[in-house]
Computed example of a mutant assay.
Amino acid sequence: MLTTKNFDAGGYRYIPAVFQYSSGVAALPGYRLERVRFSRLLPMAEGWARIRAHLGALDRPLTAFAGCELRSNAPFSEGGFRDFNLGYIGTLREWGILEGEDNPVARSNVCPELAPPTESGFHAFTYTVPDADAAPSFLIAGGAETGKGATLQERIIAYDDTSPAGMRAKALQTLGEMERRLAAFGFGWSDTTAVQAYTVFDLYPFFLDEITRRGAADNGLTWHPCRPPVQKIDFEMDCRGLGREYVLKA
């Protein structure tokens, strides 16, 4: 059973994970989560500046930053992904969000297959706003078809197998991980307002009997033709339950 921790300075709780991100966030009582999608992808430096300005305009502290959705040029090696994240978490330290390697911010970072960006950037971000009457809200971070193992090859389900059977196995692992994260906050698929899948391989063969059957597509499913951020990983999902979302002209 996954556990959660409170991040009182941000107004949310989170599921601890690896240093790059948490596995998900949920607003604490008295707060709601809001999501903003940029109208175009913003390079990292520009994105951080726009997020800072947006939070300032709402009179919210930088610690209210709770989640982000990134896009990168191509899947990283394990070492390259760690190097990228060292730069990313540097800003979180400056903003008073990260202490040690305990990172409360939920995140996805995927790689568009067609017309990829020349550099990593922000697609969307999520933050908390005080609201005494808010309904529960949450954001589950991107999760892929990985399990336990000493090496990446051991951790990836159906390693190097993108056949229909292999993709089904990958999806089952990922769906199960989404359900574990949802359950940690006391939620299920019926509480989601949006579910997103990231893969360049065909998900239709298991869309009805695996994804739709369990309620993960009750509000439809957004399929992004993107690869997960680490080489050899082929299927990723995230989901959220939010009452307010906006598009910010960029």
Results as ranks from 00 to 15, higher is better:
L175G: 13
K5W: 12
A150I: 11
L114T: 14
D209L: 10
L114N: 11
G149L: 01
D202N: 10
C226M: 08
C239V: 05
E34H: 08
R50C: 10
C239T: 07
I157N: 13
A171P: 10
P205E: 10
G24Y: 15
K232F: 15
F125M: 02
V18I: 14
N109K: 10
E94I: 08
E179P: 05
E34G: 01
W48E: 12
Y21C: 15
T212E: 15
A53L: 10
T222C: 06
F81G: 04
W48M: 09
R60Q: 06
I157F: 12
Y198C: 01
T3W: 06
F65D: 04
A144L: 15
V105P: 04
T174F: 07
F207L: 14
G121W: 01
G188T: 14
L28W: 05
R52M: 09
V200K: 05
P61S: 15
R35D: 01
G142V: 01
G215P: 12
N109I: 08
L58E: 10
Q231D: 10
E145G: 10
D238C: 14
V36G: 00
S77H: 00
G47E: 07
A26I: 01
L208Q: 15
G147N: 12
A49Y: 00
G143S: 10
I211V: 15
Q173N: 08
A27R: 08
A26P: 02
V25H: 09
A57P: 00
I233N: 06
G142I: 01
E94V: 05
Y198S: 00
G90W: 13
Y198P: 02
D191V: 15
E177S: 11
L2W: 09
Q173D: 08
N109T: 14
A194W: 05
P164L: 08
F235G: 03
F122M: 12
A184H: 03
K148T: 15
M44R: 05
F38H: 14
G47C: 02
N85A: 12
G80K: 02
M237K: 01
G215K: 12
T151R: 04
T192D: 12
D133S: 11
E69N: 08
G87E: 09
Y88D: 14
A144M: 15
A217I: 13
R168T: 03
I89E: 07
G96I: 00
G90F: 14
D131L: 06
S163L: 04
K249T: 14
K5I: 13
I89N: 09
D133Q: 13
I89L: 07
A49Q: 05
A197P: 04
F207K: 11
E34M: 07
Q173M: 14
D234M: 14
R82N: 05
G30Q: 06
R60I: 02
R52G: 06
G215L: 13
A53G: 14
A194N: 04
A165R: 05
Y31M: 08
K5P: 03
E78G: 14
E154G: 07
L98K: 00
R60T: 01
M178P: 00
R60M: 02
P136Y: 05
P229G: 00
R82Q: 09
S108V: 03
T118E: 11
V195G: 09
V18T: 12
V18M: 12
A66S: 01
A106S: 03
R35A: 06
A197S: 09
A49C: 00
P16C: 04
G87W: 07
L62E: 05
H224M: 08
A165S: 03
T3L: 10
T128E: 12
L139R: 13
N85P: 02
T199M: 06
A106C: 04
A141T: 04
H123V: 00
